Computed example of a mutant assay.
Amino acid sequence: MKNLFIIITLLGIQTQILAQDDLFEILDNEASQDKNYVTSTFKGTRILNGHSIENRNKGILEFVISHRFGRVNLGPDELYGLDQSNIRFAFEYGLSDDIMIGLGRSSFEKTYDGFVKYRALKQSSGAKSLPISVSLFASAAYRSINDFEPGREPSDSDRLSYTTQVLLARKFSPGFSLQITPSYIHRNSVELLKDPHDIFAIGMGGRVKLTKRISINGEYHYTINPLESIDAKNSLAFGIDIETGGHVFQIILSNSITMIEKSFITESTDNFFEGDVHLGFNISRAFQFGKHKKSKARKIK
């Protein structure tokens, strides 16, 4: 009887150990299924001139003012470009956490533009991790300025141009992010017959974080088949991001005076390294409408 009691006791201990092992295995499996999304690849929705991978969350309305002054090498008579200016203001809204729309108006060529940006994939770690984030961007621009010769008024269709981009970004560390932006731009009408209606470009932008609220950004767009009617230059910009609560303030030095994709990618004519630099800034203010439901997936900043 005593031996039987010992055997039963040993079996009970073994069963308990196995049960604990099964529990630990279940917990490990559950932990491995957690998906940790990377956030704040960039601080705002713009790297500098161009869009970043970031969206406004659902229910957030953002008012954006962008300003570009004249060239700093114009000298003191033009107050180093400050006497000249180009402004764009826009409203941008998060329809969902993954879809953002916007409408804007630029003083340059009195252009109206609208866009939609869809966040298709998010960089994550854990189960089924993804090494990059991917967004799709599409915009249309309407050039409303009346600078045509008498009798040669363009149609509404001739005034339109379109941009499509794929935004590919990766946050390599808390302090460094990089984005690649293949772009396709179509014009319904062109200045000269030898000008391409369809232009392809590759953009690259990066962010180096200095403090919790300050970073240095850079951006470059290489045009593969530029316009022939102008002496087009590739767009180059450097700047500083400053976050202050609900604001993101960007101070920018760029050879582009325009702030929408069809213009700064394909129509920049200034040479950054010859002093044709435009001082500018982007400033935004976000407003929350309704309650935003937080995702259950953990986020990595």
Rank of each mutant, 00 (worst) to 15 (best):
K233A: 11
I251E: 04
D195S: 03
I216G: 03
I185M: 10
N225C: 15
G245M: 02
K209N: 12
K194M: 13
N217K: 07
T244V: 12
N217F: 02
S189L: 12
T258V: 10
K209R: 14
N255C: 10
G275M: 01
G245K: 01
G239Q: 04
I202C: 02
N234L: 08
I265M: 01
R213L: 13
V208I: 15
K194L: 14
T211Q: 02
D198C: 07
V208P: 03
G206V: 00
F273L: 12
M204D: 01
F264Q: 05
N188W: 08
I214N: 12
S229Y: 04
F238E: 04
I202H: 05
H247M: 02
D276N: 14
F238T: 12
M204N: 11
R187K: 14
F273Y: 12
H186Q: 10
G275K: 02
T211K: 10
M204A: 15
H197A: 10
G203Y: 09
H278C: 12
K233Q: 13
R187W: 14
G246N: 11
G205T: 00
E274W: 07
M204I: 15
S189T: 04
T244C: 07
Y220F: 14
G203S: 07
K262S: 15
L193R: 12
L227P: 12
A201P: 06
N255L: 11
N234P: 08
I224D: 05
F249L: 09
H221T: 13
V277I: 15
L253E: 11
F272Y: 11
M204R: 05
S256M: 04
I202M: 12
S215M: 02
P196W: 03
L227Q: 06
R213V: 13
L193T: 13
F200S: 06
I242E: 01
I242F: 14
G239F: 00
G239P: 09
T244F: 05
F249C: 08
G246D: 07
L193A: 13
I199A: 01
L192H: 09
L210F: 14
K212R: 15
M204L: 13
E274I: 02
E261D: 15
S256V: 03
K194Q: 14
A232M: 06
P226N: 08
I216H: 05
S215H: 04
L253H: 06
N255R: 03
Q250L: 05
L210V: 15
D241M: 05
D241P: 08
T211E: 05
R213G: 08
L210N: 03
L236T: 07
D195A: 09
V208F: 15
L192M: 12
D241K: 06
G205I: 01
L210G: 06
I199L: 13
E261I: 03
G205E: 00
T211H: 09
F200L: 11
G246Y: 09
I265G: 00
V248K: 04
K262V: 15
F264A: 07
F249E: 05
I230S: 03
K233R: 13
S189C: 07
S268P: 11
Q250N: 12
S256L: 00
L227V: 14
E228M: 07
V248E: 06
I242D: 07
F272N: 01
H247V: 01
S235C: 10
E191W: 11
S256N: 03
D241V: 04
D231H: 09
N234I: 01
L193P: 11
A201G: 06
